[in-house]
Design a protein around this nucleic acid. Sequence first.
DNA 1: CTGAAAGCGCTTACAG
DNA 2: CTGAAAGCGCTTACAG
Lengths: 347, 347
Amino acid sequence: MTCCGPDSPSRPREGRVLKNITIADVAEALGVSKTTVSRAISGKGRIGKETRERVLAYIEENNYKPSIIAKGLAQSKTYNIGVMMPTEYHIADLPFFQSCLFGIQEVAAGENYDILLSISPPGDTEQLKRILSNRKVDGVILMRTFVKDLQAELLGETEIPFVTIGTTDAQGALQVDSDHKNACRELTAYLLNKNLRKLVLVGGDKRHVVTQKRLQGYREAFLECGLPVPDNLVFLNMEQPDVLEQKLEQILAQGVEVILCMDDMLCGRVLKKLRTKKIPVPQQVKVASFYHSTILEQNVPSVTSLSFDGKELGQTACRRLMEQIEGKTPERVTILGYELVLGDSTE
Amino acid sequence: MTCCGPDSPSRPREGRVLKNITIADVAEALGVSKTTVSRAISGKGRIGKETRERVLAYIEENNYKPSIIAKGLAQSKTYNIGVMMPTEYHIADLPFFQSCLFGIQEVAAGENYDILLSISPPGDTEQLKRILSNRKVDGVILMRTFVKDLQAELLGETEIPFVTIGTTDAQGALQVDSDHKNACRELTAYLLNKNLRKLVLVGGDKRHVVTQKRLQGYREAFLECGLPVPDNLVFLNMEQPDVLEQKLEQILAQGVEVILCMDDMLCGRVLKKLRTKKIPVPQQVKVASFYHSTILEQNVPSVTSLSFDGKELGQTACRRLMEQIEGKTPERVTILGYELVLGDSTE
DNA sequence: CTGAAAGCGCTTACAG
DNA sequence: CTGAAAGCGCTTACAG
């Protein structure tokens, strides 16, 4: 007898079983084979109606939950999808990512898949390598693409299904993207049609494919109107507030009619600058933006903005990935729409 | 002979092997047992130096990566931690969550753990139940606590280790939190010491524990100064812009010296209202906030604000969880510091 | 319709 | 120091 005194008086409560109940326990309790239990659960293979119901009832009653990990091992699957989220370029991106994630989760959960999340700075492939070499996912989703995209390249050298949210030229990628090019083209055209010509485009990281796509749309709009593309009015890599500030000084000095911003954070800064300089919007300078996030929701005047459905992107991306994982041959490129929300800032 | 023509001319390239190489392959190639290979890799159990090196060299050369899932099954572990992220209350929370996630990932990855992410609206336990019943995680982290916290309660009825970022009274929870109470107390006291008395507190969701903690700090500061607590100056559940707007009208009409906001989004709206009403900050009304996020970084005057280190919270939370998983007995409550960043808005 | 057995890719007492 | 064997909790040909 040890010196530890009597057994703890409070036995583990029901539902607090230390050891999980397994398929073998169920089989034994019911006097059938594990095979039968497995079949009852999965619905695969022939099994007597009565037997199945008996098994199902027992399982229900005893709260048996199969280990999806063991199931996965037997099927050489993981029931995980890796989602690579970039560290944000700035706060305006985050709501978009969150919506995406939510959409991804929705369809993933529907197939009993989970999200293995990993956050990496641009260009960093450490985490992705770890996940891949641990063989922990059946597929991966990249939430953003880069012009030179190391993650996409790495995945391209692999057999693992993957989809990018955003356009890429990496081999083997399924791609889901909003139609950034046409969105920007339409908005630009809309402004040109108002006879506004001095139309400045302010954007962020050049290495993001999305930045390039929008620039393309901007250019096309000019060309379609028979106008030369004013490349001198395009300012990218404006993520540093002081750099932007300086550029704005310069832009405003040389006269400008519209400032089209590639995201709401940039736009917020532009609006602030205009306010500081007592330049009335839209009377003297008009302003438009991308994303239509809550950052600008309080602005007066309301800001004309392109809006994208992050959740839908996430859902679609995940659906494509699932199709690929299941051996179907999904659409390789899916382009989703956008919405042009007109506000007072371009009136 | 089938009709499919000659073999595809381009053989799978190196590194694109369809079938992963397993421990059995390694063992066979080397003429040793799987046991030996396993020991060489894990470093557990006695093994000859030379043998180990031979195995390690082969593994390195042939790029063998053990399946962590199979390893997990054998050890009854998953090497996953579940992270429950709430759908945001608003955008100001997101940078905080991202930092947390980053911190969690950092320490998790260090132990070869991955993050199983799940996003749920407050009060929703669907996702958590799914993950738990699939037995897919070794522990879970809740990124926010609620006064009535169904997720924490659910976990409390379970044997699974979990830690909350934020205070909770759920049983069995390890807790990591910033010292919101004292942070708010210090800031309030700082303002009271400037002889400001009409000190309005504007906050968000009452159901968040963090809201309650801050309110507590606010109260204590008054009491310590020998002043009655002005509960009539406290306005919570102000997340609706129009509700806040209306309250502000009322507050401003009855005279106020300071508005202390529980987050930067609320603060942004307050600042905007003051601007609209041409009330100079800080000359007529002073303003302070929580979070010190980029949302207000551009504001003039700079905003006095309490700042918390989300990444550190994440790291600490994950460390505690790891300790618990490893069977150690970690600190049950860990309170981290804060920083009071003084700006011009309270001068 | 049902079951025994092999297998998924590892670990770990146990024995030598 | 090393290995055969059992086991982690499932699935799935194969045979009956």
